[in-house]
């Protein structure tokens, strides 16, 4: 994909500047409100990534990579999976089964709450960073 900033994209640039914060905010809402409404880590990750992709399409890859360097992205891709698997290991260390969140807190329901929070966050981080790196991968050719 050939992406670089151009002057005649002024309207798109202004609209993008306006939209990116709202898209990011909506991503966070979908991530952390997934217990109560539709949504969760997968959807939130994609929405969060789409804000970066929109920014990259309009302002160019170079500036996007300044915001989120590929080296950071590489860490984040693995960190999400590790957070998920780590939660599973933690529940095992605390004496439960793999991913049995009951043991994470004194009362099973809040244990479940924390477990789901951590696991969904892991999914969100991995999906976000994988989607952005797919975009970087395609966009950096040519």
């Amino acid at each position: 994909m050939k992406i670089y900033p151009r002057q005649h994209h002024r309207v798109l640039q202004v609209i993008t500047r306006l939209m990116v914060p709202f898209v990011l905010m909506f991503g966070l809402y979908v991530q952390f409100h997934g217990d109560y409404g539709p949504g969760g880590g997968f959807q939130a990750g994609v929405i969060f990534a789409s804000a970066f992709i929109l920014y990259g399409l309009i302002f160019g890859l170079h500036r996007t990579r300044k915001v989120l360097p590929p080296s950071t992205l590489r860490w984040l891709v693995s960190f999400g999976v590790l957070l998920y698997a780590g939660t599973g290991l933690l529940t095992m260390l605390l004496g439960g089964n793999l991913l049995d969140y009951d043991v994470l807190a004194s009362n099973p329901l809040s244990g479940q709450h924390w477990g789901i929070f951590a696991v969904e966050l892991g999914v969100g981080i991995t999906v976000t960073s994988v989607m952005i790196s797919l975009f970087y991968g395609f966009a950096s050719k040519r």
């Binding site: 109560y36 969760g40 998920y84 477990g115």
Partner: peptide
Amino acid sequence: VGPPNIVTSVLASYRGYDTL
């Protein structure tokens, strides 16, 4: 599990291993 959205309960807790 707790969450009002049962899809989340199933996805992240009942079948957490699949989601992993």
